[in-house]
C-alpha cells in the first residue's frame, strides 16, 4: 500500500497545483521522443481535460442485466442511499448515489477514479430500505462490483 501511495505522489509531482488534478488525468509517459529529442518526464506530460465529451450507456445496460442490477434504471438521484449508508459516512469515496449516476451516464474518467471503492460496500441493506424508488442500491453495488470486472458489461465500449 505504501508503494502505491508513493507511485501516486510521484505522478506529475512537478505540477504546481497538483492537488487539483486527478491522477487519472495526468499522462506522463516514461518514454517519449519527437524528432530524436527525448521529451519524457516533465517536458512530455499532458493533463487531460475534465470535460465530459460523451455519454456512454453501455456499462449501464450491462449492469441492468447482472444479478440484482435490474432496477438501477429507476434511480432518480435523490441521495437517500448515501444519506443512510454507514460506509459513506466513514469514507466519502464510496457514494452509492454517485456511483449509479456516473455509471448511468458513462463518465469514464470518474468511474476510473472511484470504481475500486465499490468493494467497500458492507451489504447491510440500509440503502435498499431507504430507497423511495425501489432501486435496491445494495444489490446494485453487487452488480457494479461485478460490472467493473466484467467483460460483458465493458463489451459495448
Amino acid at each position: 500500500m505504501a508503494a502505491e501511495e508513493r507511485k501516486k505522489e510521484e505522478k506529475g509531482r512537478f505540477i504546481a497545483e497538483r492537488r487539483y488534478v486527478d491522477d487519472q488525468r495526468i499522462v506522463e509517459p516514461e518514454k517519449l521522443e519527437a524528432g530524436g529529442v527525448d521529451m519524457s518526464g516533465r517536458w512530455g506530460t499532458l493533463v487531460l481535460p475534465r470535460t465530459i465529451e460523451e455519454f456512454d450507456h453501455s456499462l449501464f445496460e450491462g449492469v441492468k442485466r447482472l444479478p440484482r442490477g435490474g432496477k438501477v434504471g429507476k434511480c432518480w438521484q435523490c441521495g437517500n442511499c448515501t444519506a443512510v449508508c454507514p460506509v459513506a459516512h466513514a469514507n466519502p469515496m464510496f457514494n452509492p448515489r454517485y456511483l449509479i449516476h456516473i455509471v448511468r451516464m458513462g463518465y469514464q474518467a470518474e468511474i476510473e477514479k472511484v470504481k475500486d471503492y465499490v468493494y467497500l460496500c458492507s451489504g447491510c441493506g440500509l440503502c435498499s430500505a431507504a430507497c423511495p424508488k425501489d432501486v435496491d442500491p445494495q444489490g446494485v453495488m453487487i452488480a457494479l462490483s461485478i460490472a467493473f470486472k466484467s467483460g460483458r458489461a465493458k463489451g459495448g465500449r
Binding site: 505540477i15 497545483e17 516533465r42 499532458l46 481535460p49
Partner: peptide, 11 residues
Amino acid sequence: EREISRSFAYF
C-alpha cells in the same frame, strides 16, 4: 504550469 498550459492549448 506548463503541463496545464500546453494541455489546455491543445485539448
